[in-house]
Amino acid sequence: MIDLLAQAQPDNVFTRAWWDALVTREESWQILPTAFKFTVAAILTVGLYSLLYRENRFYRFVEHLFIGLATGFSVVGIVWEPVLHQKWWVPMVGAAGTDETAMKLAYWPWAVVLPIGVLAFFVFSKKHGWLSRIPIGIILGLWAGQQFNAFQNRYLPQLADSARPFIPNQFTLSSRLDPSGTLTVPDAINNLIVMATFIVVLSYFLYSFEQQSKLFQRSAIAGRWLLMVGFGAIFGTTMMTRFSLFIDRAYFLLIEWLKLGPIA
């Protein structure tokens, strides 16, 4: 333990200085001391971590606080400020000009959006519930219309990329120095594997074709296995990110808050 704290910062949590900082403001105009804010953040972090042991009243408190703050922020910071105010209210009512800024015209037709939105509240009415389908239908319709373009942009290039040449034009092993357009034997084999994987995995996702043929069944099973290879690779890379984030939190708690170790 002593060894572990050998590199602790001079004002770590076991010293008077740390506790003094908790109530000392750095600037006279500040309301809360920085160390106090860190402490609050750290306590909340520990509160969420307590879920790992089991659900408890501390976690429940932090959870409800979290949801309250998050939803409050959605109302102000995500919906009111950038959307309703900037994109709806300001264009709708405009603004009178001053000496420096031009007048903004009031585009009054935006006002019709409000009643359309309010229609959604009829969802609670048994008699006029269908009126809520109109705003919801508009949103869904707009989404549906975008999908054609999205399919073209997103999937067709991938399809084109899956169709790879598989006859080598240079019968050697690959090297970084090959000029562009060279297709060596290993490249050709890799291209074949890419295509085969694509087709085999896709065959697993056929639902309506007769599954009697042996070839088809085997291809579907192989497709599932290849999918598992893909999923395993995702698992591997994702784990690294997630652990890094936890280590960063540990750094925050131990070094930035409690100052129990060296900074760098």
Binding site: K37, L44, T45, L48
Partner: peptide
């Protein structure tokens, strides 16, 4: 500053980092 940066953002980061344990 206090409720957004010091509380909400840290709560976000803490919940995100919990994934390490679950994984």
């Amino acid at each position: 500053q206090f409720v957004f940066f010091d509380m909400l953002q840290n709560l976000d980061a803490a919940m995100f980092s919990l994934i390490a344990f679950f994984i």
